[in-house]
């Protein structure tokens, strides 16, 4: 085989390998979604964020409209403070929308579901969602259920 063709084939091979690495970085590990600038930050306080992680989805009507970027403990309010990055083309969320932590399937991951409110004001950069509903903790639910069974026996 002529040297020129050989070099070209090897070049294509190396390019294919590097391209594969790029695909793995962007498409598979989702590095790019981390760095996109066109989002705005919204905050919410939850009594219990158990199971929610950063990079979890923020959805409305089941469609992903953003992701959780930070979770911290608010020592003044004794709640979990969740920072969400919402895609900026979704700029029509009413200010009294409600955020709840929900689970995908029985064992699935936790994500935030936002249900639409009726306010004329829209959520903007730095705003807070006041109406929140915490994660469902299975042990608490079972505890309440047992308590009900006991008290109905009386």
């Amino acid at each position: 085989m002529r040297m020129r063709t050989l070099e070209l084939t090897v070049g294509v091979f190396i390019l294919a390998g590097l391209l594969a690495l790029a695909v793995l970085a962007v498409r598979v590990s989702g590095l790019s979604t981390n760095t996109t600038g066109d989002v705005y930050k919204v905050y919410a306080h939850f009594d219990n964020v158990s199971g929610l992680t950063t990079r979890a989805r923020v959805t409305m009507a089941g469609v992903t409209i953003g992701q959780v970027t930070d979770i911290q403990f608010d020592k003044n309010r004794y709640t979990g403070r969740v920072e969400m990055a919402i895609f900026s083309d979704v700029d029509t969320l009413p200010a009294d929308s409600a955020a709840s932590i929900v689970t995908a399937g029985l064992l699935g991951e936790k994500y935030i579901g936002i249900s639409v409110g009726g306010d004329d004001m829209m959520l903007a950069e730095g705003d807070e969602i006041y109406d929140t509903q915490s994660a469902l903790v299975l042990e608490e639910l079972i505890g309440r259920f047992l308590l009900n069974t006991v008290s109905s026996d009386d």
């Binding site: 390998g17 590097l18 594969a20 793995l24 598979v28």
Partner: peptide
């Protein structure tokens, strides 16, 4: 390079 191509 081959391993990356394999994964993709």
């Amino acid at each position: 390079l081959l391993a990356m191509i394999f994964c993709v």
